[in-house]
């Protein structure tokens, strides 16, 4: 099972990369860590004419915090995020979510940019971007543009990136002091893609939840914000009746799909279970959880 033949080019700047993309059009694929792309190449599910390896563009490998914003370069690897004190402190949701991504050898190589641009609906990180209200920084022939995560993920392996554009980084607002998060997924085995997962971020005051963002993944073709369900719990004292209300609302928010692991009905059910577990977690003190990440 060997990949089809392809040409290979290794640009040293974003500009060079985007002009190569413009030049080669559909025949080109961008490779960063390659952890999703290379399996597809080896299986001959993809047979590009040319690979554009952005892995040596040093300017895309950074994690920084300034002005209330966490900025992450597209080439930051999963393991870089996992080991980052800044991430643990300012976006603990992301730090926790990374531990669910695949296995150490994959996390050592896979990049966040590659993960997001690949837009696998079962992936953890796109949902985190939605929950964290992140912005994708995109470079193209006409310069840079910014797209909110909620506008970026369009479908299965489909994003707002034009064929000649490159995802070069992302910006995540530093989460407010005292804000809370929840992350969980149901996967058959450790590191497998999830059958259903939830990334959530909220502010909790006096036992009520505010500005809750519930981002589901592996349910439907793209990560989905469950706005109706979130509205049901907003500023309500959290109890069984409120949770049940919100669970019912999930049917309006989600379009669960069928596959070999789970039917759509099972996915909707698991989404409800996640919601209940999320709500009971959010109202707990999270000091221990945060400490464990640091």
């Amino acid at each position: 099972m060997k990949a089809s033949d392809f040409n290979y080019v290794c640009p040293s700047s974003v500009e060079e990369a985007t002009s190569l993309l413009a030049l080669h059009g559909d025949g080109a694929k961008v490779i960063a860590g390659g952890q999703s792309l290379v399996p597809a190449l080896n299986l001959r599910l993809l047979a590009p004419e040319i690979l554009i390896d952005i892995g040596r563009i040093g300017t895309l490998r950074y994690i920084s915090v300034a002005d209330g914003m966490v900025r992450i370069g597209a080439l930051a690897r999963h393991v870089d995020l996992l080991n980052s004190q800044e991430i643990a402190e300012h976006v603990p949701l992301l730090a926790e979510a990374i531990t669910y991504v695949a296995h150490p050898a994959i996390r050592n190589r896979g990049t966040i940019g590659g993960n997001l641009a690949h837009a696998d609906p079962a992936s953890e990180l796109p949902a985190c971007m939605m929950a964290l209200d992140a912005v994708m920084v995109i470079s193209g022939p006409s310069g840079e543009r910014r797209v909110a995560a909620s506008e970026f993920f369009l479908g299965i392996y489909e994003t707002a990136l034009a064929p000649d554009e490159l995802l070069i980084g992302l910006e995540i607002p530093v989460t407010a002091a005292g804000s809370r998060f929840y992350f969980h997924e149901f996967s058959r085995r450790n590191g497998d893609f999830a059958i259903a997962g939830l990334a959530a971020q909220a502010n909790v005051r006096d036992g009520t939840v505010e500005s809750l963002r519930l981002a589901y993944f592996a349910i439907g073709g793209r990560p989905t914000l469950a706005a109706h369900a979130a509205a049901k719990v907003a500023r309500q004292p959290i109890g069984p009746a409120v949770i049940a209300d919100a669970q019912s609302a999930l049917a309006e928010d989600l379009e669960p799909h069928d596959d070999q692991q789970a039917s759509s009905a099972m996915r909707l059910h698991l989404a409800k279970v996640l919601l209940e577990r999320c709500m009971s977690d959010l109202v707990q003190d999270q000091e221990m959880k945060r400490k464990a990440l640091q």
Binding site: M1, G34, V38, P39, V79, N108, R109
Partner: peptide
């Protein structure tokens, strides 16, 4: 497996373990 699941091809690359089947030699 050559699709990054089994771990039999694990090697160290610049000090970190990686799947040998998911890294191109040119990389």
């Amino acid at each position: 497996c050559e699709h990054g699941v089994c771990g039999a091809c694990t090697v160290r690359l610049d000090g970190d373990i990686v799947r040998g089947c998911l890294v191109l030699a040119v990389q």
